[in-house]
Every structure is written in C-alpha cells, then in structure tokens.
Design a protein around this nucleic acid. Structure first.
Lengths: 151, 151
DNA sequence: TCCATTTTGGTAAATTCTACCAAAAAGGCG
DNA sequence: CGCCTTTTTGGTAGAATTTACCAAAATGGA
C-alpha cells in the first residue's frame, strides 16, 4: 500500500513538515504534480495523520517531565475504560502505552515545574479509581525525542 | 521570553503545523504581518525547533514497538558517552530518556516486526559495552502519542 | 495486441509568503 | 508630564507556492 516513493516522501516530510512541494518533488525525484498528488493521497488515507510544529520543551517553560509506571487494581473494562478516558483528557500526559511487564501502562508527563507535577499526581492521578500503583521516574535528561519512523 | 500571544501561536502550530499564516493570524487574533513576524522569531530563537509530518505507525508498516529499561554496569563518562552516541545513531530508537529509578534509561523503539526487534537487540543493544541489564516491555496498545506541550 | 485504468508532467489561476513601508505603541529619562 | 528613542504594529505589492485541470504516457488484464 505504501510504496517506495511514498516512503521517500514520508521520510522527507518527517524531517521537514513544511518543505514546499517543489523542494519535496526535487529531493524525491518526481514532478511537482505527481509529488503533490501522492502527498495528498497520503494525507487523505491517513498515513500522514497530521503536521505539527515541534516546540523546545525547556525554552517553552516546561522544566519538569517524568515517566510513570502505572498498574491497575483490576482489569475490568469499566476501570480500564475510565483510566484511558481520564488519561486522554489530560494534556500533561503526552504519551500513554499499554505494555507487557510489571506495569500495565507507561506514561510520559510534561509540566512546568515539580509543583505542577505534584498537583498532577494529587489532583488527578491518585483520584482515578482502580489504580494499584504508580511509580514516578523523573526524567533527568532527554537524550532523544524523535517522531520520525525509521523508513 | 515566550509571552501569551506566542503561546497561542505555539498551541495552534502544534495542532496544525501547516496552518497558513492567515488562518493562524485569525485564530490568534492579530494581523498577518505581526503574526508572521512572531512565528519567524520563534523559529529563529529555536523555540520552534522544527516541523514534522506525523505518520501513522501501523499504516506505515511498523507493527512492533517496545519500551526498554536499560541500566549501565558503570557510569564512567566513557561508557555513558558511548551508550548515548550509539542510541543517537539508531533510528529505531525514537526516544531515550535518562531517568531516576531502577533503570538508568527509558527507550522507545519502533520496528517493522518482532524479527526486526530481535535483530535490534542482538546486533545492537546487547553489543553496547557496559550494559548491565535490558528489560523489554512490549507495547500492546498506543493509548496516546502526542507531541503538543500543554500550554 | 488491444482496451481500460491509472499515473504522469505541464500549465494557469488562485492563494500564500515574504520583504518592505510608514504609523502606532511602548518604554526610559529629565 | 513631555520628549525622545526603540519596538511593534498593520498594510501592501511582488515573488513564490498551491491547487485544479488537461492531454499524454505508462501500466496491466484479457
């Protein structure tokens, strides 16, 4: 479904989401119209789900971030659904994955400072019903924060 | 340094990195020229570090992903630097964070299938010197993968 | 080989970007 | 407060880009 030329396009647009169609067409080696149509198709089929500006966390005033390991007390749909719905609502939670291993979920949370993180735990996380355990791993350093799939 | 109007702009560009300057100017309520200049300043100061197309992982053919907990044997600069340099090289590693807690590092790795993940471990991860322990948590479900800071 | 379908490259009008201008706003100082 | 300097603003016009269309080329089934 996604062929080689499409992967080239995706690779480039992951690196520069605002590349003009002309630049793009040249670097992937096709005409501007063919390239434009492919990009459009990738957007409409949902392979490209969107475009985003990447903002430097620290510079933008978000000094604190952490990875949370969360396990649920019980795994009824009721509790799971409520947990998922809660997590989707909170914008501090940038990522949430259901995983194998000791924890049921891995979350990455970004906030302005430790105080805000404390509030996040007290006012939000600890109030979600059915949570057995939450372990906080504070992020000391971001080695890498990428969004580009390794085509 | 980043003021309220800038945060509005950043918020919008995080949601739609390809919004035209005119749309943007209208939604944040300023003239196109003022808006354009602010965006430019945010780019040049590095607050906006770039733009990216967001690609749907599964649709693009990356079926498997995992979160790795990695601890190092020793924490000499020598080993740490080599680990960091190695990780930065591998495009399968989308994210890497140095954290508090049992593990020294949290990594998120994305590959096409389990086979590729196996190769990633054998050919790469297990060959990095100074690694004490690697625990794999396979991602069963992506609840949320966001890039937008919660302004 | 032939026909139907898809994909291509080129073009032109509509839109958008970008660099300028003078005017307005903000800030410092006696 | 009044004056000056500096910064930020809105408007505009030319350059660049996007987007929809065309006929031609390529693809692929029967």
């Amino acid at each position: 479904m996604v062929e080689e030329q499409d992967e080239k396009i995706l690779g480039e647009l992951q690196k520069d989401g605002r590349a003009t169609n002309q630049q793009l067409a040249e670097t992937v080696g096709m005409s501007t119209s063919a390239c434009w149509r492919r990009v459009r198709a990738l957007e409409e089929s949902g392979v490209i789900s969107g475009y985003a500006a990447l903002v430097a966390r620290e510079q933008a005033g978000f000094a604190t971030s952490a990875i949370l390991h969360v396990s649920l007390e019980r795994h009824d749909v009721k509790f799971v659904d409520e947990f998922v719905a809660s997590v989707l609502k909170r914008r501090e939670v940038l990522e949430c994955f259901a995983t194998t291993g000791d924890a049921d979920y891995h979350l990455r949370v970004v906030v302005r400072d430790m105080d805000a993180y404390n509030r996040f735990l007290d006012d939000f996380m600890f109030r979600i019903p059915g949570i057995r355990h939450v372990r906080t791993n504070v992020i000391l350093k971001e080695i890498k924060t990428g969004v580009a799939l390794p085509f």
